[in-house]
């Protein structure tokens, strides 16, 4: 195991005057194997960044221990953990050139000059910034700065690479490019990597394994498929994708079959009250005859076309075969 976290708890003294301390992490244990790309996924304020910062030594845990590559790192300062850290807002050294930024960690370690120069150039090529060695960071775009920050973190040959919302400050298109690029980079360099994100799509696309963190606790650990197909609870199901309610069960909107004729056993009849086309998919809202709130349904455009759906159409809804369902809570 590359990272072994045991019974980690982090509390902050309350700021709002109440005597209850704020619990950022509540008895978290986690083990992350070597060479894997893991996502810490969860809503903002859920404790995932705190967990990452404690692994890096930038924050200290109230109780619990952190082990990196078999070494107890709980009380080691960040300088001695051999961890690469990438920040959401790049944390570039503004007064240094791109090359100097990347070389910083190696210079601290007093590597020979020739080696530093060679390796800096190698790393800049790796992150596609070979042309920009002599620029100042202010002359780079956000995506380029983040790639530079990544090269800088990789330069010290860290045993683990930690990324805190690395693409959070970038626009949607660059974000998607960098996401693919990070995946390919990881396949090339194989360093154990943990990244924090609140974007489930990002986590599902990039990570080998996802750790869902919410309110200071680990809700579920598993591969993207496992989490999507077998969510451990309501929260995980809701966080990993859209959820709607059909009769007595909760399920994903695309796991509902739509028919324009009655027939299937247990079908829920209703009327289409909203219809919205986004790209290749069509989103419906169906008001069931028995009341109980609108049901969301997603189907492809061509399917919707074939069914000749329009506002006010009468439809019969059933859960698809093999759909992931969990019982709806009575109060919903």
């Amino acid at each position: 195991m590359s990272i072994e976290v045991r019974n980690l708890t982090k509390t902050y003294p309350s700021t709002s005057g109440s005597s209850e301390p704020f619990v950022a992490l509540d008895d978290v244990s986690l083990s992350l194997p070597t060479g894997q790309l893991t996502a810490l996924l969860g809503p903002s304020g859920g404790g995932k960044s705190t967990l990452l910062r404690i692994i890096a030594g930038l924050d200290t845990a109230t109780t619990g221990s952190v082990e990196i590559e078999g070494v107890d790192a709980t009380s080691l300062p960040p300088q001695r953990r051999n961890v690469g850290f990438v920040f959401q807002h790049y944390a570039v050294f503004k007064h240094m050139t791109v090359a100097k930024n990347v070389a910083f960690g190696m210079e601290i370690r007093k590597r020979p000059k020739a080696e530093v120069r060679r390796r800096t150039q190698e790393l800049l090529e790796l992150v596609h910034l070979g042309q920009f060695a002599d620029r100042m960071p202010s002359q780079l775009s956000g995506g380029q700065r983040q790639r530079m920050a990544l090269a800088r973190a990789l330069a010290v040959e860290p045993s683990v690479l930690l990324l805190d919302e690395p693409f959070g400050a970038l626009d949607a298109k660059v974000r998607k490019e960098l996401r693919d690029w990070l995946r390919r980079l990881h396949d090339e360099v194989h360093v154990t990597t943990v990244f924090v994100t609140h974007d489930q799509e990002e986590a599902m696309e990039v990570a080998d394994e996802i750790v869902v963190v919410n309110q200071g606790r680990v809700e579920q650990v598993g591969s993207p498929d496992q989490l999507y197909d077998e969510p451990a609870n309501d929260f995980v199901m809701g966080f990993l994708g859209d959820v709607t309610r059909l009769g007595q069960v909760r399920l994903r909107p695309h796991d509902i079959d739509v028919a324009v004729q009655p027939g299937a056993a247990g079908a829920h009849a209703g009327v289409v009250t909203r219809m919205l086309r986004v790209g290749f998919e069509v989103r419906l809202e169906v008001e069931p005859d028995g009341g109980g709130g609108a049901v969301s349904v997603v189907l492809t455009r061509s399917h919707a076309h074939a069914l000749d759906l329009e506002l006010g159409s009468r439809v019969w809804l059933t859960a698809s075969i093999g759909a992931v369902t969990i019982p709806a809570m009575a109060a919903v």
């Binding site: 890096a56 300088q79 850290f85 920040f87 570039v92 050294f93 910083f104 973190a153 010290v156």
Partner: peptide, 24 residues
């Protein structure tokens, strides 16, 4: 963040002061 980044790259407090903070 910048000081934390330097620390995780192995820079001690004096180095951070001399190479990161003072130049800024």
């Amino acid at each position: 963040d910048v000081e934390e980044a330097a620390a995780s790259l192995g820079a001690g407090r004096l180095t951070i002061l001399r190479r990161i903070v003072l130049p800024s």
